[in-house]
Design a protein around this nucleic acid. Structure first.
Lengths: 277, 277
DNA sequence: GCTGGGAGAGGCTTA
DNA sequence: TAAGCCTTTCCCAGC
């Protein structure tokens, strides 16, 4: 269902019906936006796209950037109301005679769309001056995305190929839960020393080293033994490299990108491909 | 501009025109999606909303969740092509006689929309079986959002109210750039000791302590002097608290919420309000 | 529910 | 451009 240049009351009705029936609602219109909650924001008048989803997600997009300019996560509720100058005046200064409304009866009328989140308490108010477009869609879709190459998956792959990193490296407690606490992979080297392995699917930065360092320290205290730490990532920043060396930790370069011929990881790549195809 | 249940060639033309003229394009249709790049993903057939923005941003939304299921950041380019079974067969197994096309001439025809990112090399392919809806919008909008309550802003406010944290605390190099490297605020206490302050606008977790610890250690080495570290946040998790104590760092509770009467931060709240109103 | 950490993170500022 | 870090981060898995 869709309508072009609907009146604000028409739009209100359409949107309410759509929300009620779980249809995705798209609105394009000239609006100003206010947000108050964990933080606050204001956006002056302009044309934007508003999206209301079945699960109560709420998005406001400008015609640029990937991320919405305002948003609410799933679960919020919506309120719609027609407001006009007379109403507003009444509320604030009492009834007045309408002025300047001869040219356009709607020029002072606005549609307010509020989306409210309970916890934390947050509210977005979209004040539409005009709506150029509303459409609603049933959106039949029972599929879920399958993602390949997440850190978790790479970790699994790496477990069976630990020798890629170092000869003689074996998982601690073979075929058992690796994720001890927050450590990605726990292993033992050929000298029987514990090795904590932190995996990053992208260029490792300072905080990755901080993390590994923390894990190593905790493991040392817990096991009361010497513990090595290896950071596995496709790249590392200079600062992180220096920090790593100061902490006596190690780096192993490993590229994970899918479908990239330059990522010639023995065995790993083919396994990824197999999973992906 | 909009069209309902367009043919795939019509949709192709409409979309190409819109991209060329920088109009935001909305497409609702039944499609399958494939992504290859830093990672990979597959999504089987279903109805989704596709958004193409002026700056080359690309979004695929299902009717749930806040985040797009697939996406490209600004700057990517688009390719559209009509594909059908005969074409496909030719490519793979040579010409064949068309079968089962009597009922619906378009049943084997597809519209492929590819969005390509240069660096890193990534590609999304959306294969439309049917398109129920296309609309394009000029989206006149020259406004930028003004956000209140970001950590940066809070840091600025706090600089002029350092005594809130501790009596006698003064900024190092008064009225000068504080952000030495990555340290939020550098100060001196009444005993002349350097104090590194890390500010978190929300509940502080382990990595916040890691961060502060790292800054303190670096500052110690750099200045070769005793250095205190204070974590300022509205809350702290138990794990972070323990870690903090082990590292001999300090915590100061400070609530930043906007419009929350419980946030009785002397001066800070009124300053925030002033900024927001 | 809280804690912890990844994300195809994106996006921003500064060097 | 890279580096570092914030985000109204969202989101998910574990506990």
């Amino acid at each position: 269902m869709h309508s072009n240049n609907p009146s604000l009351p028409e739009a209100k009705q359409t949107i309410e019906n759509a929300i009620h029936s779980g249809r995705m609602t798209l609105i394009v219109g000239e609006c100003s936006i206010k947000y108050m909650g964990r933080a606050g924001s204001k956006l002056s008048n302009g044309e934007r796209l508003i999206i209301i989803k079945q699960d109560g997600s709420f998005l406001v997009h400008q015609n640029q950037k990937m991320n919405p300019v305002n948003y609410q996560p799933p679960g919020c509720i919506f309120q719609l109301s027609i407001e006009n100058e007379m109403t507003k005046s009444k509320e604030t200064t009492g009834p007045e005679e309408t002025t300047g409304s001869e040219n356009n009866q709607n020029c002072e009328t606005e549609l307010k769309l509020s989306s409210i989140r309970r916890k934390p308490k947050e509210k977005i108010e979209v004040i539409f001056k005009t709506i150029s477009f509303v459409s609603t869609h049933k959106m039949h879709d029972n599929q879920s995305i399958r993602l390949f190459g997440s850190e978790n998956q790479l970790s699994e792959l790496l477990l069976s190929d630990l020798h890629l990193i170092e000869k003689g490296l074996v998982p601690v407690k073979k075929e058992q839960v690796m994720k001890k606490g927050t450590v990605d992979i726990m292993a033992k080297d050929s000298h029987g020393r514990l090795v904590v392995i932190e995996l990053k699917r992208r260029k490792a930065e300072l905080n990755a080293v901080s993390q590994l360092s923390r894990y190593v320290e905790e493991t040392k205290k817990l096991k009361n033994t010497q513990v090595r730490g290896i950071l596995v990532a496709p790249e590392i920043t200079p600062g992180a490299q220096k920090y790593l060396e100061r902490e006596n930790l190690e780096f192993f370069k490993l590229d994970f990108s899918i479908g990239n011929p330059s990522a010639k990881i023995n065995g790993l790549e083919s396994k990824q491909k197999t999973l992906f195809e």
